[in-house]
Simulated assay, not measured.
Amino acid sequence: MPYRRAGRSGLVLPPLSLGLWQNFGTARAYETQRAIVLRAFDLGVTHFDLANNYGPPPGAAEEMFGRILATDLKAYRDEIVVSTKAGYLMWPGPYGDFGSRKYLLSSLDASLKRLGLDYVDVFYHHRPDPETPIEESMGALVTAVAQGKTLYPAISNYDAAQTDAAAAVLADAGTPLLLHQPRYSMFDRTPEDGVLDAVDRAGAAAIVYSPLAQGMLTDRYLNGVPEGSRAVTSVFLHESDITEDVLGTVRALNEVAAGRGQTLAQLALQWVLRNPVVVSAIIGASSVAQLEQNLGAIGGPELGADELAEIDRILG
């Protein structure tokens, strides 16, 4: 595995990390989830990305991963990077959401209990809070580092100005920003409008989520919307999103991938990783076979200028 350095830090990460967002929880068999996690680790995926609300239900992904850590990976804790987040609704009442010091530190304690860990390697503020000063939210991350409950602070879904502000607070406290996790794919290039530059200014790195655009950048929808696909079952992707224009774009991109001897998913992953600010892309997996196929993006032929220009033309 060709590990990559996260900004100006001492931490290296695999180019593809395993995310436990939608495929890990009570809705799937534990043995399937366990097999995916263990196969990922065997193949050199050392980073596992979680959040307090991942499941379903919220908290289930952390509990499941904690069980795997305890039964299979306990001896390898120092070879694994575990990250979790807080920032979305986790429990009822006024203190279970967004970015107050009370919520973030309480959520981290609950996450550690579910994971069965004394600390996580990375703790994210999952989204900016319009009502709470960034100084308070970042101060909570600084406290978590000081308490030994996390090693590195991180943020997710912040815009460029918010990233600059958060990075400044963390730098002043002596706990520099490690990672920013934005949504980034061929179909969502929003981070190119300032966020990636802000991450670079901070000496941090981007680790991107949804690089396959909820599965649209795979061969899943080349012939329309199949039964049981995420476009039918997920709240994050809808059948109405798979328009004829989208299908035309996906098929054209698939031709580029085929010309390189790759799947569309492998091309899409390699495309986000082309940016030097991006240290890793987070992938999900519903099976070991899907995991192995996506990991095939690592070591693929470098994207040439002509290919990048053709992709830009297709994307319009």
Rank of each mutant, 00 (worst) to 15 (best):
I134V: 13
A166S: 08
L115E: 08
P92I: 07
V169C: 13
A161S: 12
D159W: 04
S111Q: 06
G116E: 11
E136F: 04
L89M: 15
P94W: 01
P133H: 11
F98P: 07
R127N: 09
Y119W: 09
G139S: 10
T175F: 07
P133L: 12
A140I: 03
S100V: 04
A171Q: 11
D164F: 12
I80S: 09
G87F: 04
I134T: 10
L73I: 12
G116Q: 10
A110Y: 07
K149T: 09
S106R: 04
F98C: 12
V142W: 10
V122F: 00
T143Q: 15
D159C: 05
D164S: 13
T163E: 05
S83F: 04
L89C: 15
V122H: 00
V142D: 11
F98M: 14
Y152M: 00
D118W: 08
F98V: 14
M138G: 05
L115P: 04
D159N: 13
H126Q: 06
D118T: 13
I155Y: 01
K113H: 14
S100Y: 02
L73T: 11
K85P: 01
A160E: 05
L141N: 06
M90Y: 15
A166Y: 02
G148D: 04
T150Y: 04
K74F: 14
A140F: 02
D109Q: 08
R127I: 13
A167L: 03
D109K: 05
D78V: 11
D78E: 14
D172M: 10
T84L: 00
S106P: 06
E131A: 15
Q181G: 02
V82L: 06
Q181A: 03
V122E: 00
P176T: 00
Y124C: 00
Q181L: 06
E136S: 09
L117V: 12
R77I: 13
D72V: 14
L179P: 00
G139T: 05
V120H: 03
P133S: 13
D159Q: 06
S83P: 02
Y152F: 07
K102Y: 11
S107Y: 01
H126K: 05
A154T: 02
T175N: 09
G116C: 10
T84K: 01
H126T: 08
R101H: 11
D109W: 02
L104Y: 00
S156N: 03
Y158P: 01
Q162W: 03
F123V: 02
R77D: 11
G174W: 01
Q162F: 06
H125N: 13
I80G: 11
T143L: 14
S111F: 05
A140S: 08
P94C: 10
N157V: 12
T163K: 05
A110D: 13
E131F: 14
T71R: 15
Y119P: 01
H125F: 06
H125C: 13
A165M: 07
D121V: 04
V169D: 08
G96V: 08
R101S: 09
A154Y: 01
S111H: 06
V122D: 03
R101Q: 08
K102N: 11
T132N: 10
F123L: 02
A167D: 02
D129K: 07
G93C: 07
G99K: 00
S100I: 03
V120D: 05
Y103N: 03
P92L: 08
L104R: 00
P133D: 10
A144Q: 06
A86N: 00
Y158T: 03
G139Q: 09
